[in-house]
Amino acid sequence: MSALLAIVRRDLLLAMRRKSEMLTALFFFIIVVSLFPLGIGPEPVLLRKIAPGVLWVAALLATMLSLNRLFAADHADGTLEQLALSPTPLGLLVTGKIAAHWLTSGLPLVLLAPVLGVQFDLDASALGILVGALLLGTPLLSLIGAIGAALTLGVRGGGVLLSLLVLPLYVPALIFGAGAVEAHISGLGASGHLSLLAALLALAVFFAPWATTAALRVAME
């Protein structure tokens, strides 16, 4: 357990020493979201309608940007091998790395989303649901994305390939995440969507680190 905390702390420390990478993904998120009103027009009704979808799609893309780095640096400098040879089970360390990835790339999106939601004329209760859905959904993105990051580790054209592999798998998260806000706005209530997101998250917490570990071992062979 202490090893799990140690790797989370290490990755957070490394992210702090390389703040620019983290901030780039964050600004990408902001810019993509801000482009939509420019492309579509500023009518508040329309913006309110597309807000959940736009914010979610932008969150997916911003996550993709940071996924590349999840294992690549550790792979390049040989630390990944050391992690695999540590007495601590690799699956545990991988879980820690995914958690750190969420803390540095998912959580900032969640915190930033309400500010961007205001641009789209969402009211306070809708913003609350948006944050809740992102809070459940972004860890899911990190977990599923980790599998793709491990599979494409050290592979030619890894970055583009990664999005090809991972984005289709993000469809359920997108549907339930954006759907939660839409359902709330249209008065249907978001609890169904949110509980399904939570169920998916529970499933991914069990299976994704395991599949990621298997993929990493293949990549290191």
Binding site: A3, L14, D77, G78, S86, P87
Partner: peptide
């Protein structure tokens, strides 16, 4: 095992590197 690669983190100090590596071993 010490491989071809350094297996040290460039952004960390030598002291931090040793401490982190040990912590990962528990």
């Amino acid at each position: 095992y010490l491989g071809h690669h350094g297996a040290v983190k460039e952004d960390l100090t030598p002291l931090e590197n040793l401490r982190v590596a040990a912590a990962l071993d528990g």
